[in-house]
């Protein structure tokens, strides 16, 4: 079991249990965490599952590859260095405790 903490733009925290192998997007949707729209269902096509990875975790998660960065430019909230599409982050055991921040808006 791994745990992920989502922090909204206004600071509200939700921590949920997750299964290794799931994407961060899937975990958020299954737990009804608000603020992840994920319209394309994880196909890296919609940019409505945008998150900012917490600085402390960014090295372990890694930066977005180039095609993901291109898609992030279409995100509703500004893309930053720590931006990722949460459907492209697959949970591994070393991501236990992961913290991600939700942007102000996905649409």
């Amino acid at each position: 079991m791994t745990r992920i903490t989502f922090i909204t733009a206004d600071g509200a925290e939700t921590t949920v249990d997750a299964t290794v192998g799931d994407s961060v997007m899937r975990v958020a949707r299954d737990a009804n965490v608000p603020g992840i729209a994920a319209e394309c269902g994880g196909a890296k096509m919609c940019a409505t599952c945008h998150v900012y990875v917490d600085e402390a975790w960014f090295d372990r998660v890694g930066a977005a590859p180039e095609d993901e960065q291109d898609m992030l430019e279409f995100a509703a909230s500004e893309a930053r260095e720590t931006s990722r599409l949460s459907c492209q982050i697959t949970l591994s055991p070393d991501l236990d405790g992961l913290v991600v921040h939700l942007p102000e808006s996905q649409i």
């Binding site: 729209a37 394309c40 269902g41 196909a43 096509m45 919609c46 940019a47 279409f74 649409i107």
Partner: peptide, 23 residues
């Protein structure tokens, strides 16, 4: 107030032309 509309569908058939139309 912003809320998700479904005009481009969702899931695996989500519109391929979404960003094109938006831009």
């Amino acid at each position: 107030k912003k809320a998700s509309h479904q005009s481009f569908g969702s899931g695996p058939h989500h519109c391929l032309g979404t960003h094109l139309a938006r831009q």
